[in-house]
Design a protein around this nucleic acid. Structure first.
Length: 568
DNA sequence: CGGTGTCTAGG
DNA sequence: CACCTAGACACCG
């Protein structure tokens, strides 16, 4: 049986209808959407047929269960009885090996088997519906059989890594939560976006005219090559930085030129507006499903090497917030009629994870006594008492606090802060004087990763780091930064996953109508009817703050409002 | 048309 | 040479 909805195909091996499955306890199911991750709306008839086909008592093994689940949910069904997800298993066995863990790639790695791709199955045809049914069926069979075989191959590896529990208790149930979020979507008002786009478009046109005037002739502002020629050949502005293909016109270069050259400032303005139009107002309007006025993003669970979730189609995690113009995009994100949006985000979760892992005395004290950590760091770097730390100094303290998480060196820190490399090195030295426990933890963690070949997160998720064994010192340095960063970033991701699971269970158990809509790494967005807001806020805060017990408290900031902009 | 480079958005 | 990313556009072959 091979079913073909509008976009892509749901492939369910025909052998399962006509022959006994090869392992009686398992039913392999492969869902492939045009060869991409993602979810395709199903026709009611297709969904009905699939639902019936999958309703049997046998546990199912699915590759990307989330996609199948989301597709069924949109059609009013749910996917039950999934015992294993081979994409999640592959991700847990080695997160970076087969990114994004599509079936063909995973089967090649762990079964040494070449599968026909969705593309092969389509032949020259644009859609599965127009393709040769025999080819589609053959592809469906091989995909489903491979899924079943993969599970058999991957389970011993999961057990070896002690990762079966993470699969069963965290990642697999989370895939169901993500499917619901994707199927529910978030309401976005096209009129707000259209109005913003008109405003941005008019301003972009004005700025563009001014740039052409300053240049003396029109050119394509979107081409950094042409812009470079105008700035550095024609206008003879001093070259600041070069890249592989010529002059760099990146934002940091233009910012340096802006005080003396109006054209640089205008180009920055043009780029900001151009980005907002092309990447946000236009894309989001297109992404709104006309049947429900909502945006149904995909939450990828097997794409972030550190274990983070990734949103695509559209990429909601990169919705602007830093500039006033950008933030206005968030005014278009609203709750369903009469409801409220609730935004909840962890305060400094990664630095708290660092405090927990390192047990550094100064970090523990700062968080346990609710001190201002960035101020504390700044006071040390600038050798002043905390009360005398200026706002600029505090910003530097913040930068240095984050720099350690990333393993940033003096060169890059100096560049970022606009101070000499030597001064940056002094700051780093002062940082590690104050936080000597962090230095010790970094050294210990890197040495351990070196010995083991992998690093580990709070929940015991592993990331292999082959770079640590490289003969190339640059690769080894990269491996060391991964070894230091992944436990922090990955553990924060683990915490967020646990919180999401607990919150969804609690909302269900209490029979609340409120919905979890989007995850933005350290922020969760919900919508709730007015009567539920107080209870939902309490549940969300409680679960986010207490889903794990760390050596420092987790703090959560919650906002409620009629739009994402207002709730944040 | 697919691949690469540059640039910019977020945490 | 700062970690994890997605995506738009220009440009090249």
């Amino acid at each position: 049986m091979a079913l073909c909805p509008r976009r892509g195909a749901i492939a369910v091996a025909p052998v399962l209808d006509s022959e006994p499955p090869r392992a009686p306890a398992l039913v392999g199911v492969a869902l492939c959407v045009g060869g991409d991750a993602g979810y395709a709306p199903l026709s009611p008839a297709t969904a009905e047929a699939l639902h019936e086909l999958l309703a049997g008592p046998r546990p199912k093994i699915v590759h990307h269960a989330r996609d199948l689940d989301a597709a069924l949910r949109r059609a009013g069904h749910a996917l039950g009885g999934v015992a294993g997800d081979t994409a999640l298993a592959s991700f847990l066995v080695d997160p970076t090996k087969c990114i994004p863990h599509e079936l063909e790639r995973v089967a090649r790695e762990y079964l040494q088997r070449a599968l026909p791709t969705a593309r092969d199955a389509r032949g020259g045809a644009a859609t599965f519906a127009e393709a040769d049914p025999a080819a589609v069926a053959a592809w469906a069979v091989s995909s489903a059989v491979a899924t079943e075989d993969l599970w058999t191959a991957l389970v011993p590896r999961l057990d070896e890594l002690d990762a079966r529990k993470i699969h069963d208790d965290v990642e697999l149930p989370l895939s169901g939560v993500l499917a619901r979020m994707s199927a529910d979507g978030v309401r976005v008002l096209p009129d707000v976006l259209a109005s913003l786009q008109r405003d941005f478009g008019a301003r972009r046109a004005e700025v563009e005219a001014r740039v052409h005037e300053l240049a003396g002739h029109p050119f394509n502002l979107g081409s950094s090559k042409q812009l470079g020629e105008v700035l550095f050949d024609e206008l003879k502005i001093d070259v600041v930085k070069r890249n592989k293909t010529g002059y760099s016109t990146a934002a940091d270069v233009l910012e340096r030129l802006a005080p003396k050259h109006e054209i640089a400032e205008r180009v920055l303005e043009w780029r900001a507006l151009d980005k907002l139009i092309n990447t946000y107002t236009e894309v989001l309007q297109r992404a709104i499903d006309p049947t429900d006025g909502r945006v149904h993003a995909t939450f990828q669970q097997t794409a972030g090497a550190s274990g983070r979730l990734i949103t695509t189609d559209p990429d909601l995690q990169r919705t602007p917030i830093r500039t006033d113009d950008g933030r206005r995009i968030r005014e278009a994100f609203v709750p369903r009629g009469g409801w409220e949006l609730i935004s909840a985000d962890w305060s400094q979760i990664e630095l708290r994870v660092l405090a927990h892992c390192s047990k550094d005395a100064a970090l523990l004290r700062a968080f346990n006594e609710r001190l201002d950590l960035h101020r504390q760091t700044a006071a040390s770097i600038f050798d002043v008492v905390e009360a005398e730390v200026t706002r600029e100094q505090r910003t530097v303290g913040k930068t240095v606090n984050f720099a350690t998480i990333y393993g940033q060196g003096a060169t890059a820190l100096g560049q970022q802060l606009g101070v000499p490399r030597k001064r940056a090195q002094e700051m780093i030295d002062r940082y590690f004087e104050l936080y000597s426990g962090v230095r010790a933890w970094l050294d210990r963690t890197i040495a351990e990763a070196d010995a083991n070949g992998y690093c580990e997160t709070l929940l015991g998720r592993r990331r292999m780091i082959p770079e640590l064994r490289s003969n190339n010192w640059q690769d080894r340095g990269y491996g060391e930064r991964i070894a230091a960063n992944t436990p922090i970033q990955g553990s924060a991701a683990d915490i967020c996953k646990l919180a999401m699971l607990q919150i969804q269970r609690e909302l269900d158990a209490r029979g609340l109508a409120a919905k979890m809509l989007v995850q933005i790494h350290d922020e969760l967005l919900f919508e709730a009817p007015p009567a539920e807001v107080t209870e939902v806020v309490a549940v969300v805060r409680e679960r986010m703050e207490r889903c794990v017990e760390l050596a420092v408290p987790l703090e959560v900031e919650v906002g409620v409002g009629p739009s994402w902009a207002a709730a944040h």
